[in-house]
């Protein structure tokens, strides 16, 4: 009974985490644009981006802890840190571990950004573009519900959001003052 609960919650937190990560990525791109978003002023966009990231991280941690405690999952401590060593679907599990590793780097560098300086912080933050596809691949490959319609619909919505955000990111007038400014450092 407890096992069932752990297993269900373990998967549920994973899926919810993915939702928050999608929101965080979208809001991160919105922050970079320097524009307000709907009714949110710029500082609120940045703030909600951080909230979504931290909430998503918390959910990932829960996802990991619950699965570690779940005897059915049979996960060792090392599987949470070093990818591709697992016994059950090692590739997809490994991607999950890799995603967690990337997340740890991003979150730690973000929390310490004032001490690291803007260049180190930004360099590490690029890893977020890698983080989302790895997490999504892990969900699709490893997730028990991956074949279910509702999950595929959910995953599809996340993918559309991210693709839309990327198209926006690459658009010429992406930043607010792109039109009036001269280019930066050569």
């Amino acid at each position: 009974m407890i096992d069932q609960a752990l297993w269900a919650l373990g998967r549920g937190t994973g899926i919810t985490a993915l939702a928050f990560m999608t929101a965080a990525l979208f809001l991160g791109i919105a922050t970079r644009s320097g524009r307000p978003l709907l009714m949110l002023p710029r500082f609120a966009v940045a703030d909600v981006h951080r909230f979504a990231s931290l909430a998503g991280t918390l959910l990932v941690v829960l996802h990991i802890v619950l699965l570690f405690l779940d005897p059915y999952a049979q996960l060792r401590l090392v599987d949470f840190i070093v990818p591709f060593l697992g016994t059950y679907r090692p590739l997809w599990l490994g991607l999950g571990t890799l995603a967690f590793d990337l997340l740890a780097v991003v979150i730690v560098t973000s929390l310490l950004r004032h001490r690291l300086g803007v260049r180190a912080f930004r360099a590490a933050h690029w890893a977020t573009y890698c983080l989302w596809p790895v997490a999504m691949a892990h969900a699709l490959g490893n997730g028990t519900d991956a074949g279910r319609a509702w999950f595929l619909l959910f995953a599809g919505c996340c993918a559309v959001t991210v693709c839309g955000a990327l198209v926006w990111r690459l658009h010429a007038n992406y930043t607010e003052y792109a039109g009036t400014r001269t280019s930066g450092r050569p």
Partner: peptide, 8 residues
């Protein structure tokens, strides 16, 4: 060209 007001 490091600072916006100067560069622009």
């Amino acid at each position: 060209r490091q600072c916006g007001p100067c560069r622009n």
